[in-house]
Design a binder for these strands. Structure first.
Lengths: 232, 232
DNA sequence: CGGTATCTTTACGACATTTTAATGCCGTGC
DNA sequence: GCACGGCATTAAAATGTCGTAAAGATACCG
């Protein structure tokens, strides 16, 4: 299984904005939980233990800042505030209550995405584990470039093997075309060299798959590309 | 909520804004270092090792985003970007390069203060710098620059050997790239001199490893860098 | 000034990784 | 059944990187 898909809780009363956020986040491969007021948001934060919260300040039942304080009483989960209010007092209040970032509406999708990455980067860097992958017995940390099994065995991957796995992991569960893999791993000029892929996929399977002849994680989509399977 | 005076580096070309920031930060009990362009900013970041960087994107000599990338090659110090540019591409570029926050001018003093606190909060929560190290029989105190074995034997390391070990220890368990090691140990102009690393790693292994030909602590990641293994 | 420790530079063999090439396999369509 | 395209597999060649030793340069200290 892979931990790549992380959960995000959206606390926002406007259904329209909520839907937009969900679409946006799901495109980025996050799991999404929604809550339409502070009360339910708090409950959802407790029960779902999401990896990040997106909170609107203007909620119908309580002020978003209060919600942040309550969550901070027991969790350090990253919190990003969305708000139409541009006045400084609100920003400062939310940030001092424990929010990690404050984005004013209207905002662009790319900015939100970038700020999400920053917030998650902080969370994972302090928890030591980077982007963790599990393939068979192997626990792979792409950022730390380390791979070990539960029993302590270590596995060595070469730079190209890491890059290839990284690209596949970025689109986990989805097919990545030959062309995309080649340009991202070997550079823009290498789009024709599909033999590289065969050689390296074989290498990776030999190292990672329990039975390399019957791949369970590194799958071939004939005529299209390769795909890293998503499993439990 | 004043913390033991921490240093902040301001990289900003407008003298007026620089003065304003200095005043503001000194009121908050920070020590302030200034640089008026990217080149000097990079040098100051290396020599002063500030606890946080405030960087303007519109610098006279180079783009601020480049500066961020260069600093990120060897350091995780929090970086806050100040910019008059409100367009999304700039924000996203800076954040993806490794900035932790992005504030658009004009901004209020209280907002800056709140965002500073957030950035520093992240840094301290993930800080875990112990200066004691154990490699094989050797107990090494990086701060005191001493190394002893259990039975009292002493080991002498040269200044460069200590610095190299220090950098590796700061990222214990993780690969440190050639570039990062060279810029931190030999200075920013030495990023190409990978032969230094080979020579000094051999020295260190000869002194620290029980069997220098089969390193157990000072490991090579061919084509990437070196890493100090994390054991027991 | 001479001696010692440290740092820099060079060269080459050993080793790791990437690239190239050749062969066999399997399914599809003719 | 046969030819073909796409993929898997293998091994060897080519390239790149590392470890090693040793000599030259520089700084340091009495």
């Amino acid at each position: 299984m892979t931990v790549a898909s992380r959960a995000i809780l959206i606390v926002e009363d406007e259904p329209q904005l909520r839907r937009m956020l969900r679409t946006l986040l799901e495109l980025e491969n996050f799991r999404v939980v929604e809550a339409e007021n502070a009360e339910r948001g708090l409950a959802a934060a407790r029960s779902h233990k999401p990896d990040l919260l997106i909170v609107d300040l203007g909620l119908p039942d309580r002020d978003g800042t209060e919600l942040i304080q309550e969550v901070r009483a027991w969790s350090r989960v990253p919190i990003i505030v969305l708000s139409a209010r541009t006045d400084e007092a609100n920003k400062v209040g939310a940030l001092e209550a424990g929010a990690d970032d404050y984005i004013t509406k209207p905002f662009g999708a790319r900015e939100l995405r970038a700020r999400l990455q920053v917030a998650l980067r902080h969370a994972t860097s302090s928890a030591a584990a980077g982007s963790a992958l599990r393939i068979g017995d192997w626990h792979i940390d792409l950022k730390a470039r380390s791979a070990r099994a539960g029993d302590g065995r270590e596995l060595h991957l070469t730079p190209t093997e890491y890059r290839l796995l990284e690209v596949l992991a970025q689109h986990i569960g989805l097919v990545v075309t030959h062309r995309a893999l080649l340009t991202q791993v070997w550079g823009p000029g290498s789009a024709q060299q599909t033999q590289y892929l065969r050689v390296y996929m074989k290498q990776l399977r030999g190292k990672l798959e329990p039975d390399p002849a019957r791949p369970r994680w590194l799958l071939t989509d004939t005529g299209v590309g390769y795909r890293l399977a998503l499993r439990d």
